[in-house]
Design a protein around this nucleic acid. Structure first.
Lengths: 207, 207
DNA sequence: ACAATAGTGTCTTTAAGACATTATGCG
DNA sequence: CGCATAATGTCTTAAAGACACTATTGT
């Protein structure tokens, strides 16, 4: 049944996240229509009658940022947002997801910004991003899928530390990190990785 | 903007939970309309154009189980469900919440069942309840609001153990529980509570 | 050799868990 | 007293954190 019944509009909003150039970055796209036409915002679409939430998320990524399904390493559901003032058009609810994006992906027509670079964002997109990053922080090193998607299947200790630091609020214990990784199930040590100068960082991969 | 645009229907489904008679119980109500007319199901309503998600949840509780706002100790969001087969009427998405209900509340026309008593439930309500209880298990002793709502503002060690056991999957360490409570921030010891026979259980209250 | 980066040795503190023993109530 | 229930004493183990010291690279 599609709606003849009157209800709020349902939008699916995606927070495309990846770690690049030393920081966590979120892909924003310029809005092509009103409201907030021309402003940077999270990719989002209105849910279609026969579409699943995940499919709508993929469509939002494709249409608004040029990212396709293959670029998405994991999709994580964040929640439903219904701040009544969130949309000047009136009642709208948003179902938000995080999409962890492959570092190899190119995002055409979108801008990767780190949280420190955000200007004013339309709707409640700032809230949504905050929740999204907080969710990732909770799942990093607790959920294998999310961890693997964020830091990669093969990585160095230094890389893992960098991501963990940017995602967590407090300080990260650098000197004990190798030990922690040794005890982390699902990861095993491989060859060291030369990072430039200094002692090379140990290499790890997911099994 | 309300919908002239075609979209899936949005239903708000609530899992009303409380601890009573030695077990976790969920309030189910008999469906008054098709589909699944006459069957027990979670209270749920279709979201109205100007209604917030929480308001719709309160309305579902009131209409389908006779529970009112004052009976709800805490509302917890669970997530959005979109299994395409979940509703025989066609595309529908469900936004689900847990409502922790006061032990004092009377639920007219509804049935409090523990998970072991569930028969076949319509839609994906069994899934939703599983997620709901799993969420509560995660938040018990981690989130003060949820913990207080579940076990009460004043409680005995025995009571806390009983709830924790029913909610968690594994075994609960009974002998060290008093020690654990002593270290739990936000709770302080008060007078012991006589439970019938045996040594009285220590009393606790949230500060 | 020196600066830069990464890893190890070792100690301390805290939390969890296991069990035997002791304490407090009821009939 | 004897049964039921709850709390404590004590020991073991695992996890987290701190911090000085050692190791490996590029220049």
């Amino acid at each position: 049944m599609t709606k003849t019944y009157e209800q709020p509009l349902v939008s699916i909003d995606v927070v495309p996240v990846r770690f690049a150039d030393g920081d966590i970055r979120v892909a924003l796209g310029r809005r092509l229509f009103e409201p907030f036409k021309g402003q940077l915002a999270l990719p989002g679409v209105l849910l279609l009658p026969t579409e699943s939430i995940d499919d709508a998320a993929y469509r939002a990524l494709e249409v608004k940022t040029g990212l396709n399904r293959g670029d998405v390493l994991t999709l994580v559901r964040i929640g439903a947002f219904d701040n009544p003032d969130r949309d000047p058009r009136g009642a709208t609810i948003s179902i938000a997801l995080v999409a962890i994006i492959s570092p190899a992906a190119e995002a055409n027509g979108s801008i990767w910004q780190s949280p420190s670079e955000f200007g004013e964002l339309p709707f409640d997109h700032f809230n949504i991003i905050e929740e999204a990053l907080s969710e990732l922080n909770v799942r990093l090193w607790r959920n294998n899928d999310v961890t693997k998607a964020l830091i990669g299947t093969e990585f160095s200790t230094a890389h893992a530390i960098a991501i963990t630091e940017k995602l967590s609020t407090g300080a990260v214990d650098k000197t004990n990190f190798t030990r922690t990784l040794k005890n982390y199930a699902g990861v095993e040590q491989s060859e060291a990785v030369k990072t430039g100068r200094g002692r090379p960082s140990a290499g790890w991969k997911f099994v």
